[in-house]
Amino acid sequence: MAASRRQRQAGRTGLTPQQCQAARELLGWTPMQLADAVAMSRATVTLFEKGARKMAVSNQQAIRIALEQAGVKIDAADGPRLA
């Protein structure tokens, strides 16, 4: 199945809400733990994961970097997985 436009865009710039939540859950992190790791509020992370809030690309990239440094590989085609 071809990747959606949103998934292709996320692969180039940041990540999708679904990738964020799946990667966080792979690590066993709560939204608060992720928020602390990237110096954002829990509400910002939660609303982003629910698709209720758009997030700046720079913030998406910060989350992606934190998740990848913690051991998750985020691939648009296969989704998040432990590295």
Rank of each mutant, 00 (worst) to 15 (best):
M1F: 05
A2R: 14
S4Q: 05
S4T: 12
S4P: 03
S4N: 05
Q7D: 14
Q7I: 03
Q7Y: 02
Q7W: 01
R8F: 09
A10N: 05
G11Q: 13
G11P: 11
R12V: 13
T13R: 11
T13E: 13
G14S: 10
L15A: 03
L15K: 02
P17V: 08
P17R: 06
P17H: 09
P17L: 07
P17D: 04
Q18Y: 07
Q18S: 14
Q18L: 12
Q19F: 07
Q19T: 08
C20H: 02
Q21C: 04
A22T: 10
A23V: 00
A23E: 01
A23D: 00
R24L: 03
R24Q: 08
E25K: 13
E25L: 14
L27A: 13
L27W: 12
L27K: 13
G28D: 10
G28E: 11
W29S: 07
Q33S: 15
L34W: 02
A37W: 08
A37L: 12
M40Q: 09
M40A: 10
S41R: 07
S41Q: 10
R42S: 02
R42I: 00
T44F: 09
T44I: 01
T44A: 12
T44Y: 07
V45N: 04
T46Q: 15
T46Y: 15
T46S: 15
L47T: 12
L47M: 14
F48E: 10
F48L: 06
E49K: 03
K50C: 14
K50D: 15
A52R: 10
K54D: 14
M55I: 07
A56S: 15
A56H: 14
S58G: 05
S58M: 03
S58T: 05
N59P: 00
Q60N: 02
Q60C: 04
Q60W: 00
Q60D: 03
Q61G: 01
Q61R: 12
A62K: 13
I63L: 08
I63T: 02
I63V: 12
I65A: 09
I65M: 05
I65Y: 01
I65D: 07
L67A: 04
L67P: 09
L67Q: 07
E68W: 00
E68R: 01
V72N: 10
V72K: 05
V72C: 05
K73V: 00
I74G: 08
A77Q: 14
G79L: 07
G79H: 07
R81K: 04
L82A: 07
A83R: 06
